[in-house]
Design a protein around this nucleic acid. Structure first.
Lengths: 210, 210
DNA sequence: TACTAGGCTGACCGCGTGGTCAGGAGCAAC
DNA sequence: GTTGCTCCTGACCACGCGGTCAGCCTAGTA
């Protein structure tokens, strides 16, 4: 709980290859067993290095977790933003967003379990709050942009673009929250995905066609 | 990880007063510092009893957590169901649901942080999965009932009542997920609440009036 | 060859944890 | 009085944790 402020803010790009290996191992372990439960020993084993090396590179366990979470969030933000570029018309952009977000059952489950951990973590220690706050701004900004385009084109009709972006995000994350808890998450992934898309268009004031 | 099946299924009603005290303390501690972080010592101190007493009554830490989570979920389900009784017409029922769910910033935050913990917990050990699965059925069933009434009365228009119930739940929980992460959660609670209500009515195909 | 610097490790430390256990306090039954 | 039962506790245990540290290995360099 002490000195929560001086978290390592090293840009993820400048990390050495070895550090990236460790970060990836940390994320993998975290996603698999929950960020609270993991020990340095587990991460070290996963990475095939000694426990002491993790501390050598990151100083503390907390700093390693922070770096791994940061990396995972940045990666996700980039992926979503990238998916958006493949579409130009608002209706298609929504589809592209959904495609970029609902990538694959395995990866989605890992990420959202990890994400829930992060939210819970963030609520207790301020440093992590900024982290998820950054993702928050990126995602909601992206959503707002797409919705804004749709409103301009007369395809969507919403009162407030930013509020609509929040609703959109709520719907998506809430969907994942329920989906994660199902036992048939592997098989039902695509069903939840299409249900979510339908609801989204409803929220944005689009008349459903197909 | 071993013997996850034989969790204690004692009905919460049959618990002795002392056990209820402990359960409440466990929930309070859990909601405050996260279910992963809490130690038996913390809970015992909160309850003003010795650590050994917790083990005497519940056997293991896991079983105590289970009992506390069960109690909290049952309590919440009862509250929501109770709130519904005050309204008869579908439109009002939605309002009543929202009122029963968005009770109070403090309590909501505590409960949702706890709930996220539970979801994460449940995803790793099957016993807890059944727990949240039960809540799932109760809540979604309730939602479906209300939506069904609205559809019959011609107030709501949805394709599939059960799917709509899931969307409704997704929107609500997703809203909480975002709200929890805000720094001004205390002040903004009512704003998120009313935003959520508006979005809900949109989802249910109601034309917004006021 | 000798020296240096940085990546890396095994052995180690103190601590807090979940869980055990022998037994004390209070009380009812006989 | 004493036996037995339930509730309850402090002292204790083994264990795994995050973190430290002395020192090894390798590559660069002069």
């Amino acid at each position: 709980m002490a000195a929560e402020f001086d978290v390592d803010v090293t840009p993820t790009q400048t990390r050495s290859p070895r550090e990236m290996e460790i970060i990836r191992s940390a994320y993998r372990t975290m996603a698999h067993s929950g960020s609270h439960r993991i020990s340095l020993r587990e991460v070290a084993t996963e990475a095939g290095v000694s426990k002491a090396l993790l501390l050598y590179h990151f100083g503390t366990k907390e700093a390693l977790l922070f770096a791994a979470m940061k990396w995972a969030l940045e990666r996700t933000a980039v992926r979503i933003r990238g998916g958006l570029e493949s579409a130009s018309r608002p209706r298609e952009q929504i589809g592209a967003l959904i495609d970029a977000i609902f990538v694959d059952a395995e990866a989605n489950r890992e990420f959202y379990l990890f994400y829930l951990d992060l939210v819970e973590h963030a609520s207790r220690s301020p440093g992590f709050g900024e982290l998820s706050g950054t993702l928050d701004q990126i995602i909601n900004g992206l959503f707002a942009e797409v919705i804004g385009n749709g409103v301009t084109d007369g395809v969507f009709s919403v009162d407030d673009v930013d509020v609509a972006a929040r609703h959109m995000r709520a719907l998506i994350e809430g969907t994942f929250l329920q989906w994660i808890q199902t036992t048939d998450w592997r098989e039902s992934h695509s069903q939840w995905k299409s249900d979510c898309r339908v609801a989204l268009l409803l929220l944005l004031g689009v008349v459903q066609d197909s």
